[in-house]
């Protein structure tokens, strides 16, 4: 856990598009993402790009998300098989869909 830095986590979340990835992972796992809580857990340095481990709390279950430059995987527990995965292409497609629904400037 040493070396875990808040700013590093944020920089990696932006770089890996973690919010986008988790939304897609949950949808693929048929879990409603609306009330999901996401908490950074650990950063594992790697020459291929750091791995970020996130903890996820949704529908009364604690799950894990492993996030790398190549995509993300949703795991129900510590060592279980992923119940959903997304790659960079999936994220690009999801980003296009999300962009169509952007409500960035939305005054009433």
């Amino acid at each position: 856990m040493s070396g875990l830095l808040i700013d590093d986590v944020i920089a990696l979340a932006k770089k890996y598009r973690t919010g986008l990835a988790i939304d897609l992972l949950l949808r693929r796992a048929k879990i409603v993402p609306d009330k999901a809580l996401v908490i950074a857990h650990a950063v594992v340095p790697s020459p291929d790009g750091d791995l970020v481990r996130w903890m996820l709390y949704a529908e009364n279950h604690v799950m894990a998300v492993l996030n790398t430059p190549d995509g993300a995987a949703l795991l129900p527990g510590e060592s279980a098989q992923p119940i959903a995965t997304v790659g960079v292409r999936d994220l690009n497609a999801h980003a296009d869909l999300i962009g169509a629904g952007s409500m960035e400037a939305n005054p009433l």
Binding site: T18, G19, L20, I22, D23, R27, P33, D34, A36, V38, H94, L97, I98, G99, G101, S102, M103
Partner: peptide, 8 residues
């Protein structure tokens, strides 16, 4: 979905 991603 945009709102969900924004929140996450």
């Amino acid at each position: 979905q945009w709102k969900s991603v924004t929140r996450l």
